[in-house]
């Protein structure tokens, strides 16, 4: 399996994440979309690291390290985001992003 397959999975996952962010009515799904995008990026990191290494360069864990960072970052993000979601639910009594339109002001 070549690099193209990994990138294709990553791209699909990214696209699904984007779609989830853009169209889901529930903010939790939007968060999930964000996670999907982050994981699409992770797949890219890991895949590129793997195939770069295979091409004969010295052992290099940069891509994998970045992936681990991203996972940590995603966890932190999820915590913050869920806190925001809770506050939004408090404020709007809803978790639908379409109803939280205070940015318009």
């Amino acid at each position: 399996m070549g690099l193209g397959a990994y990138i294709a999975v990553s791209a699909a996952l990214f696209a699904l994440g984007i779609v989830a962010i853009l169209v889901r009515r529930n903010v939790l799904y939007v968060l999930m979309g964000i996670e999907m995008i982050l994981n699409a990026a992770n797949i890219n990191f890991v895949a590129f690291n793997r195939f770069n290494h295979a091409a004969g360069s010295q052992s290099n864990l940069d891509g994998r390290m970045f992936a681990i960072f991203v996972i940590i970052l995603a966890a932190a993000e999820a915590a913050v985001a869920l806190a925001i979601v809770l506050n939004v639910f408090h404020l709007f009594n809803s978790v639908k992003p379409a109803e939280a339109d205070l940015l318009r002001e």
Partner: peptide, 14 residues
């Protein structure tokens, strides 16, 4: 364009 809806903004960004 300034509807205040995050998703819409994201759509434009995308």
């Amino acid at each position: 364009f300034q509807s205040g809806r995050v998703q819409q903004y994201a759509t434009f960004a995308v």
